[in-house]
Amino acid sequence: MTDQDRQTAASKYPLLAHPHIQLHGTVDDMMYARFKTQLAEAPVDGPLVVSLTTLGGDPEMGRAMGDDIQLLRDYTGRETLFLGKVAVYSAGATFMAAFPVEKRFLTRGTRLMLHERLMSSSVQLSGPLTTLPAVLKAKLHEIEESIKIQEEGFREIVRGSSVSFEELCEKAPSNWYIEAEEARSRGLVLDII
């Protein structure tokens, strides 16, 4: 992409030059608090632009911010735009999934990283034998529910793109890195600026 091509792409989307909400760092409860503060301070009319740079974090905080965006869109009809900058990894991609593909943008050189949810846990078995199956069943239910949530997120991130749910499921276990150009050509984002 030449400098002129970049200028042309950027001139098509002037609102992206000045995001109302600018988030960077780990997706966690502190980012969620910054998100809520900036959302409250943003203009109430016109499109809302959110930019994000992150190496990942807590997927539930990504989902919570995404829910706020979806509720805003559903209840007010307000247009919401996503701008990924430099890195949109893991929980950042979970947040990006809350925006329809035609409302997603990346800056040149940005990379997405999609992967499976991670769990680190141990099961302590101690007590009467008749109580132990319940402990194991509870852990199994936690894993099964986490897989359902993961699959819901995978379906959202690929909805409207040429990437199939099955392809994402195949590539996610080994951390799928997607450069901005590929993300655009596969329809995961509308454009690169």
Rank of each mutant, 00 (worst) to 15 (best):
G66A: 12
D67G: 11
I69E: 01
I69G: 00
Q70W: 08
Q70I: 07
Q70H: 07
L71I: 06
D74G: 01
Y75P: 02
Y75E: 15
Y75D: 12
G77D: 00
G77Y: 02
E79H: 06
E79P: 03
T80L: 00
T80H: 01
L81F: 01
L83V: 02
G84W: 01
G84L: 01
G84A: 02
G84N: 02
K85M: 13
A87M: 10
A87F: 08
Y89K: 05
Y89W: 11
Y89M: 04
Y89I: 00
S90A: 08
S90C: 14
S90I: 11
S90H: 11
A91V: 03
G92P: 01
G92K: 01
T94C: 11
T94K: 05
T94V: 15
T94N: 12
T94W: 12
T94S: 09
A97L: 08
A98F: 02
P100I: 03
P100Y: 04
E102D: 15
E102T: 07
K103P: 00
K103A: 04
R104K: 06
F105G: 05
F105C: 10
F105H: 12
L106D: 00
T107I: 03
R108F: 00
R108V: 05
G109R: 02
T110E: 01
T110Q: 04
M113F: 08
L114G: 12
H115A: 14
E116F: 10
E116M: 06
R117T: 10
L118Q: 13
L118W: 10
M119I: 15
S120C: 09
S121I: 10
S121D: 14
S122A: 11
S122R: 15
V123M: 08
V123S: 04
Q124P: 05
Q124V: 11
L125Y: 01
S126N: 12
S126K: 15
L132S: 04
L132K: 14
P133C: 03
A134I: 09
A134R: 15
K137L: 12
K137W: 05
A138T: 15
K139M: 13
K139Y: 13
K139V: 10
L140C: 06
H141N: 14
E142H: 13
E144D: 13
E144F: 12
E145Y: 08
E145F: 11
E145M: 13
S146I: 03
S146H: 08
I147M: 10
K148M: 14
I149R: 15
I149D: 11
I149C: 11
Q150N: 04
E152M: 10
E152V: 14
G153C: 13
G153S: 07
R155L: 15
R155I: 04
E156G: 06
I157W: 07
G160W: 05
G160N: 07
S161M: 04
S161R: 06
S161E: 02
S162A: 14
S162L: 11
S162C: 09
S164N: 06
F165S: 07
